[in-house]
Write a protein that binds this DNA or RNA. Structure first.
Lengths: 331, 331
DNA sequence: ATGAAAGCGCTAACAG
DNA sequence: CTGTTAGCGCTTTCAT
């Protein structure tokens, strides 16, 4: 039938075929409500007949809406983002948007530069973990609709996962197991989350009249687990809370190598409950973060903002402690 | 300085500022070679001065090139794709393309439908694990430049990971450990990879004059591990090769529950070496697949095809056996 | 090497 | 409700 090499059919073809103006075709296809039932039928029939497929680019140029939203992450490599990619993907698809994936390689420069460059081809962006200073963020938000995740900046809608509350639970848990020397394994200093977690940890320990100490900071990545494990051991602590699960899992490996038993000799708590935390050895006690949900909510916020009133809010998602086998009584 | 609400600067502004035609500005910016050094300088200076940012949509509409490539996966949820997302992301960024992520939810219908709809807004697509029958694939390839991964269809450039060769190694490994009853844990039947692996397994076992049996098929996902483990146990085999690591890891969990020791009572081999395979309990012996590399190569193939001659080839990437602790001598 | 002019395919006032 | 008329911002012949 088709030879596939024919000039693609446009609304002009449909207009010709049905004897109406192109604008009417456009309406019938994009805003069926604004056209009489009769002509609408005819036009849609013709469109089907001719196997018409709208040209997204043309539509975007004329309307200013691209139907595309970007998810911006600092490092696709980080399993933490997998959940976010999932969540945003699902919700964006449901809302009829295309999903662009941007990796900033942990650089604020890249982040601002890429978004600046692509701003005309996006309807909005979700910043998975912005490395940008507050003022840059606000400036960016003025160029393109933004929603941040785990990053609270005045004026920019955001969804934050309340890990600090979870940290308090974790400390409670460890204290109730008899631990008194609990150390925080610090992640990258530029990380907003890292700061928040450390603050929460200090506060929680103080409430128990315990001193707060930390080791690190260590760079992102499982590899940091080695140095981190050694540092914790060296600190003399009997329990630790790691910046994230990647660290914690890396530590588990290292501790095993060194013949340190978990949790008998050292209890370790992770953060985020990423893929793998439940089948590591031992399974990791961790703060389960609703990452996927965060992604979905972020999309909802953005989409409702794009399609309705500019209701800019902040959403806080709870975290809870999932106790598995990497924590136990102080021996 | 800026109030951010000014009309965005266009090439017309640059043309006005430098006293040349818009076409010259266009050339100076997109094909610097086609313009005299002097005017090129002036134009580029003006562009910088005015903080000009090209409008990707307008460019796309006029030129037909969108600078966007889609990665199509059947389920973002599957950790197998994480590596592919990484690899394609890296290489696409390097080549200056934007990275669109499409999830087909395991449905061939969705796959063809979404690509058909978006074809005008893409320069090409990489099919991570197409569910499409060969003829549909060929038809699609006629609409939009395609590269497949782990799917070999005549006329469509592809990169396939040679897991079958790896399977042979795995069988060798198990046989050398004394196993004679080795069962294959089958994945979804529509999966091309699953078929290929089973065939390879049969062939390898035959070479050793051993019978080939399989359990399943089971649906994708870690959850299948439970049923799979039970089925394998029931088969009386002392070793098994699972369709993929997700299955294998799920099995590990189930076997532990049932008090079956791995590898003492049962050896298990996975496929792909996804994130987590090295820190599961016990760490998984598996076929390490260069998934990330596959993603990169797929992008290279596609990009070179988009920018040069249509050299359509198939690339085969090797797999190797990574022996960890989930396999051991037959007891 | 540069300019003029014609679109790319669609949407969006503005009339009627 | 529908047609007319302008563009959206850029690339691309075709002249010069």
């Amino acid at each position: 039938m088709d030879d596939g090499r024919r000039r693609p059919v446009t609304i002009a073809d449909i207009a010709a075929a049905t004897g109406v103006a192109t604008s009417t075709v456009s309406r019938a296809l994009s805003r069926p409500g604004r056209v009489s039932a009769a002509t609408r039928e005819r036009i849609q029939a013709a469109a089907r007949e001719l196997d018409y497929v709208p040209h997204p680019t043309a539509r975007a140029l004329a309307s200013g809406r691209t139907g595309t939203v970007a998810l911006v992450v600092s490092d696709v490599t980080n399993p933490f983002y997998f959940g976010m990619i999932r969540g945003t993907q699902q919700q964006l698809k449901a809302a009829g948007y295309a999903h662009l994936l941007i990796d900033t390689e942990d650089s604020g420069e890249h982040e601002i530069e890429m978004l600046h460059t692509m701003r005309r081809s996006l309807d909005g962006a979700i910043l998975g973990a912005s490395r940008l200073p507050a003022r840059s963020l606000v400036a960016l938000a003025d160029e393109i609709p933004l929603v941040t995740v785990n990053r609270n900046v005045r004026g920019v809608p955001s969804v934050v996962i309340d890990t600090p509350a979870g940290i308090a639970q974790a400390v409670e848990h460890l204290v109730s197991l008899g631990h008194r020397d609990i150390v925080y394994v610090s992640g990258p200093q530029q990380s907003w989350s890292n700061q928040a977690r450390w603050q929460a940890m200090k506060a929680a320990l103080e409430r128990h009249k315990l001193g707060a100490q930390r080791v690190g900071p260590f760079p992102s990545g499982r590899g940091s687990g080695t140095a981190a494990a050694d540092a914790v051991l060296n600190s003399g602590a009997t329990a630790c809370v790691a910046f994230n699960d990647l660290f914690a899992i890396g530590m588990l490996t290292r501790l095993r190598e060194r013949g340190v038993r978990v949790p008998a000799d050292l209890s370790v708590v992770g953060c985020d409950d990423i893929f793998g935390a439940d089948f590591s050895n031992p399974p990791l006690t961790t703060l389960t973060a609703p990452i996927e949900q965060a992604g979905r909510v972020a999309v909802s916020l953005l989409v409702s903002r794009l399609e309705h009133q500019p209701l800019r809010r902040a959403v806080v998602l709870p975290t809870y402690l999932t106790v598995r086998d990497s924590t136990g009584p102080r021996r």
